[in-house]
Amino acid sequence: NQASVVANQLIPINTALTLVMMRSEVVTPVGIPAKDIPRLVSMQVNRAVPLGTTLMPDMVKGYA
Rank of each mutant, 00 (worst) to 15 (best):
A64R: 11
L17D: 02
V6A: 04
R47A: 14
I37R: 05
R39N: 06
Q9D: 08
I37D: 01
N1A: 15
G62D: 13
V27W: 03
G31F: 02
Q44R: 06
M43K: 07
A16V: 12
A64E: 14
S24E: 14
I13V: 14
D36L: 03
M43W: 06
L19C: 14
L19G: 12
D36C: 07
D58M: 11
V45W: 00
T53E: 10
A7N: 01
M22Q: 01
A34H: 04
P50Q: 14
G62R: 05
V26I: 12
E25F: 03
P33Q: 10
V26A: 14
P33S: 09
M21C: 04
L17V: 04
P57Y: 12
L40K: 00
Q2S: 15
Q2G: 14
P33C: 15
V27N: 04
L19Y: 08
Q9E: 13
P57I: 10
K61Q: 15
Q2C: 15
A48K: 08
I32R: 00
T18E: 06
I32S: 01
G62M: 13
V45M: 07
L19V: 12
V60C: 03
T28V: 06
A48M: 11
P38D: 10
Q2W: 12
M56Y: 08
I13P: 10
E25V: 04
V30T: 12
T15Y: 07
S4E: 01
L51P: 15
P29G: 04
A3R: 03
V45T: 14
E25R: 03
N46E: 14
M21W: 02
V6H: 01
L40R: 00
A7L: 04
G31T: 01
S42R: 07
V6P: 01
M59N: 06
S24V: 09
R47W: 14
L19M: 08
M43E: 08
L55Y: 00
Q44H: 07
M56L: 12
V20T: 12
M21R: 03
S4L: 01
K61A: 07
V30H: 13
L19R: 06
V26Q: 09
I32Q: 00
I32F: 03
G31P: 00
T18L: 05
N46M: 14
A3S: 11
N46S: 14
S4F: 02
S24C: 13
A34V: 12
P57A: 12
R47V: 11
V41F: 05
R47G: 12
T54C: 05
V26R: 03
G31M: 02
T53V: 10
V6W: 02
K35W: 14
L40G: 00
K35I: 14
P29R: 03
R23G: 12
A16G: 11
V30I: 07
D36T: 04
A7K: 00
N46W: 07
L17Q: 00
V5H: 00
Q9R: 05
T28F: 06
P38E: 13
T28N: 13
V26F: 09
A16H: 06
A7P: 01
